[in-house]
Write a protein that binds this DNA or RNA. Structure first.
Lengths: 108, 108
DNA sequence: GATGAGTGCTTCGGATTTCGAAGCACTGCC
DNA sequence: GGCAGTGCTTCGAAATCCGAAGCACTCATC
């Protein structure tokens, strides 16, 4: 359950996903995550390192540890599912309100 | 990416997981989720319904839609990974700070 | 039919988290 | 030196989360 808690924090899943593609520097990673807040990114990066999912390379970039890559791979089915989900929602568009990306968040 | 955003909200993953086991009423579901706040539970339940992942049964209980069960199954590998992760952390306990469940949250 | 218990759900003040603009120290480059 | 880019920190404002309290309703039990 602790894992569901860790992943259930804003941006955590996204960061793991982005870092899984390739090592990234702080600012570039931030841009990949829709320009998320630097303070939160720093916080998440620290949490991820404490959880031994991420680490800093000798060149200063951030990467996933082997354990982190494992985690990211376990996310594969979720990504696959999300495609089906998107297709499903496209077929049956409700009145309004999408659930995800419904503008409830504030990215000013 | 919208899926990672939807799942990256506190309690969402947990709720999907709990509902996947069996249909549950509001208050019981709340208890299963470590007694999470009822206001947030209501919010999540609404989001999940809008996203067509959850629905209300004729008897008033909440369940996962077929699409929702699909999502929950896609979470399987994540759960498996979390076991390996827990084992790994148990082997190499750092100085302090666990990353997950590090007391940063407030459950008064 | 009153009482009590259980339900789904809402309200609301306060604690916590997230945001984002600004800035600091440092490195490389012209 | 001046300029740009980096990782990272600070801080006030906004959004989110919390949890106790309560409402309307159902269903037994008295």
């Amino acid at each position: 359950m602790a894992a569901l808690d860790l992943f259930g924090r804003r941006w955590t899943l996204r960061i793991i996903w982005e870092l899984g593609n390739e090592p990234l520097g702080f600012r570039l990673l931030q841009r990949r995550c829709d320009g998320m807040s630097s303070s939160v990114l720093q916080q998440r990066l620290t949490e991820l390192q404490e959880a031994r999912l991420a680490e800093v390379l000798s060149d200063g970039n951030y990467t996933l540890t082997p354990l982190g890559h494992d985690a990211r791979e376990s996310l594969g089915p979720v990504i696959e599912w999300s495609r089906r989900w998107a297709a499903e929602l496209a077929d049956a568009p409700p009145a309004a309100a999408e659930g995800a990306d419904d503008g409830r968040h504030n990215r000013s």
